[in-house]
């Protein structure tokens, strides 16, 4: 199970901007924007069912992401 957390698009992302700002000094060109987020990999005990998904969704909305300024997306992997 993977949870990706990103700042909402309208929210300022100072870290992404810092990465963007560092690119020219590394000789990288042609990059217009960088946004930085967080990536969580979560293993569940037993079946990956609706119930487990709900628990992880709750976890993401309360602990992993700050819903005031961040969005999150869930996807099952592997």
């Amino acid at each position: 199970m993977v949870v990706d957390v990103m700042l909402k698009p309208e929210i300022l992302d100072p870290q992404g901007q810092a990465i963007l700002g560092a690119l020219p000094s590394l000789g990288v060109s042609g990059i217009a924007a960088v946004r930085q987020g967080k990536h969580f990999e979560i293993d569940v005990d037993g079946e990956m069912d609706e119930d487990a998904l709900g628990r992880i969704r709750d976890l993401a909305g309360t602990l992993l992401a700050n819903p005031v300024i961040e969005d999150f997306a869930l996807r099952v992997e592997g």
Binding site: I11, L12, P14, Q17, A18
Partner: peptide, 15 residues
């Protein structure tokens, strides 16, 4: 849509 929701200001002390 969501893009127009009042958005929290995020500070950047280095800026």
């Amino acid at each position: 849509g969501p893009a127009k929701r009042p958005a929290v200001q995020v500070g950047d002390p280095f800026q």
